[in-house]
Design a protein around this nucleic acid. Structure first.
Length: 289
DNA sequence: CGTGGCCCCTGTGGGC
DNA sequence: TGCCCACAGGGGCCAC
């Protein structure tokens, strides 16, 4: 669900947690937590009963103070003052909710992990579909090593770097941009919005784009993500920030989810196609063919 | 190695 | 009203 703007808004809304001591944690579903040494994708359902019991609390920051909140692309991490780290992948439906002392957790279903903080507040990880999860690291350096496999953050990548990376693949540009190893942070919404703004057809082979087109694309990526962050992210269904607030960036969408409607630029009908198993909406007129 | 296909899950909305 | 199917913001793993 969340792409870079949503994860960034979640990060910002969690900043008040800095300095809090983690007093305890309750884990209701162990299969959403991946510990150091586990298989990278976590334990499968059938294996999870057999996996060794280890001190979950230690790995989930209990006894430490939340010191930093990092984001790279769509990945978020809580770093404790002793260097322990928990990476949060939100998948499609994941949420991190900060619940103040005495406040009730509004939506309590699918709350898999609940931390108790020293001010009486709680931090809750929910995820209905469980495509997301938590990855624990003994030290932030181990997290950094994992993140090194990701491409540059989509907010930072410049046109030259983007072109270099796109030139290595012949996949359709819409598919390539969703590959987090190529550039980190874009998903199906903002890829479509950026390609529309840059007037590039989503099926064009990535290595076919010229320097001028990639310059437009990089500028659009930055503009689209920046505007979405300012609007607090796109709340289509599940996404809310840590305070429970929805974002208003859906109002900015020009093509995402609008197949069959009129193109906001030329008024012709927007088309829908399927690339890499995901539907992509585009304007065959404004985005060439 | 790059690439395409399949799978992991639950919830919702539309068509019948 | 109810049922069934398609589809959803992601990404890991497998076989070519």
């Amino acid at each position: 669900m969340p792409e870079l703007p949503e994860v960034e808004q979640i990060r910002r809304s969690l900043l008040p947690l800095r300095g809090r001591l983690v007093e305890g944690v309750r884990v209701h579903r162990r299969d959403v937590v991946v510990l150091p040494g586990d298989p990278p994708g976590g334990w499968s359902r059938s294996q999870s009963d057999a996996r060794p019991r280890r001190l979950l609390g230690r790995h989930l920051l209990v006894g430490g103070r939340i010191e930093r909140l990092w984001r790279h692309g769509k990945r978020l991490a809580l770093i404790a003052d002793d260097g322990r780290a928990v990476e949060v992948g939100l998948g499609m439906t994941g949420q991190l909710l900060a619940v103040g002392a005495g406040e009730r957790l509004e939506a309590h279903g699918h709350a898999h992990v609940l931390w108790r903080l020293d001010d009486g507040g709680r931090l809750v990880f929910r995820d209905a579909r469980r495509f997301g999860g938590l990855w624990a690291f003994e030290h932030e350096a181990d997290l950094r090593a994992k993140w090194a496999a990701l491409g540059p953050d989509a907010l930072d990548v410049d046109a030259a770097e983007l072109r270099r990376r796109l030139s290595r693949t012949a996949r359709p540009v819409a598919v390539a941009l969703m590959d987090q190893r190529l550039v980190a942070g874009l998903g199906n919404i903002y890829v479509q919005e950026a390609l529309f703004g840059a007037r590039i057809p989503p099926r064009r082979p990535a290595n076919d784009l010229g320097a001028v087109e990639v310059s437009r694309l990089a500028a659009e990526v930055h503009a689209v993500l920046g505007a979405a962050i300012e609007a607090g992210g796109s709340s289509l269904r599940d996404y809310v920030d840590a305070s429970g607030a929805r974002g208003e960036a859906v109002r900015l969408h020009r093509v995402y989810g609008k197949g069959g409607e009129a193109c906001p630029a030329c008024g012709r009908v927007l088309e829908r196609l399927v690339l890499g198993g995901r539907s992509v909406v585009w304007c065959p007129f404004d985005q060439g063919s």
